Computed example of a mutant assay.
Amino acid sequence: MIQARDMTPAELAALLAFHAEAGVDWLVEDDPVDRIAAFAAEKAARQVARPAADASSGNLPARTLAARGAPQSERQPARAQPAQGSALPAIPDENAIAEARFAAESARSLAELKTAIEGFTSCNLKTSARSTITAQGAGTSGIMVIGPMPNADDDREGMAFSGRAGLLLDRMLSAIGQTRESVVISTVIPWRPPGDRMPSGPETAICRPFIERQIALVEPRLVLVLGNFAARFFFGETGTIHALRGKWRDIGAGGHTVPALATLHPQELLAAPASKALAWMDLLVFSERLQTPPNG
């Protein structure tokens, strides 16, 4: 079992963000743990270990060595600085958003749009991602399924909803008589953010033209929105998925308005299996609307 102490700060932040997005307020363990005593013991152990580590001048802080007149070669090296002219990931700005909008609107098919997104270089998320995730599936049912952003499995496989979450999504689709081939699946963000963190406001803004153009090109009859981030993105609200789920709302993209229903993301259901009952209720509502004639 992975312990918190074995995780990097970025992994811990991503895990906490996931639990917060899923509506988790408290984290409990099977057995009570005296955190105060454990912290005191760790602090005492560090204080005992520090003098031993400082016994060798090679491990003394640089400022202490300098005060003792130690030669520069024995001091800790200065923090490396980026070389002049080195390229750093650009933060999306108004020009980048305009470029994304132009690239999206210029595409006349999903294939052209995928090529445009893969060639887009003005979003820093693309620099750390292995794959570009865009709409996949035939969409013969008139359904479009949209999640938040790719995770590590998606980035590795080059396909949205891979791994265990993908297997659960397959079962959810099967429950309403659909398959991956009969729907179109995509994500709001086409690139996996580093460490699975939440995309920033500017990053989300620059990706908006791409997902909206995908919706406009697919022209789905209904949209199933998965997860807190995607629901907030489309509905413009700040509530959790538990407050946003199960209610029909119209979303617009490129002059195309389509009814959308939000439910919990498969990854959230894997973390909290008790919520599967809520997702099942949402799927029943979605299926009922799906069986209603478009003009009914």
Rank of each mutant, 00 (worst) to 15 (best):
P190E: 08
S275K: 12
Q214T: 11
S275N: 12
I117Y: 03
L168I: 03
F18V: 05
P89V: 06
K126C: 10
V258Q: 05
P293I: 04
A262P: 08
T134W: 01
A135Y: 00
I176C: 08
F286C: 15
G147P: 02
A107R: 10
R50I: 10
V285D: 11
P209E: 03
L284Q: 15
G69H: 06
A104P: 09
I176P: 05
M159W: 01
D6A: 13
P61A: 15
P71A: 15
R208Q: 14
A83M: 10
A216C: 08
P202W: 04
P266L: 08
G163T: 08
R289D: 04
R50V: 11
C207W: 00
I176W: 00
A279Q: 02
M172Y: 06
R208T: 14
K43V: 15
S128Y: 07
M7T: 04
V48Q: 15
R35D: 09
D153H: 09
P71K: 12
E74N: 05
A45G: 12
A111S: 14
T121K: 12
P190Y: 01
D155K: 05
D170G: 07
P199H: 08
F286N: 07
D31A: 14
A40L: 14
G147L: 02
D250G: 02
L27D: 09
A231K: 01
A45W: 01
V33P: 00
E74A: 09
E118H: 06
Q178S: 04
T115Q: 14
F18N: 11
S287A: 12
P51E: 14
L60N: 07
I241R: 05
I211C: 02
T240C: 05
A70L: 03
S174T: 06
L261F: 06
M1V: 11
I251P: 00
I143L: 10
V258L: 08
